[in-house]
Amino acid sequence: MFDFILSKYNYWIYIILMMIGFYAMIGKKNLVKKIIGINIFQTAIILFFVSTAAKRGGTLPIVEHAHGHGIHHIHAASYVNPLPHVLMLTAIVVMVSTLGVALAIVIAIYRRYNTLEEDEILEQRK
């Protein structure tokens, strides 16, 4: 039982982080708070994806003694899995560009309705 908790507690904390972001997305009324929730949600999922790459006893994915020693055999088990890192680099950059577009839309909404609260905007649209 203790072994089960020790090998799975990371996933549970990632799920709690994702729940915090999801609650901020659908439960909060302020638009900037919703965008903070989106950020937390995406970061939690990226954290989960990177954590699948971790290996016990593995080092950074940079080949040691690369130049000047000739080609020698490389043990893949002693390096961390590099593929999730590559995919998540792309995901982080896309996350920030969507954040920029979302904040631009928020500024445009504030110029038109003069408020950031969701219920007041819906009240003005009636």
Binding site: Y11, R56, V63, I71, P84
Partner: peptide, 27 residues
């Protein structure tokens, strides 16, 4: 999460299928 491999398991399916080819051939 009960079906996920253990955290930092060196023999998880993500670590033994595609990525060793990239690590060994990249140099």
């Amino acid at each position: 999460t009960q079906d996920m491999p253990n955290w930092a398991d060196p023999n998880s399916p993500a670590s033994i299928h595609v990525s060793p080819r990239y690590i060994e051939k990249t140099l």
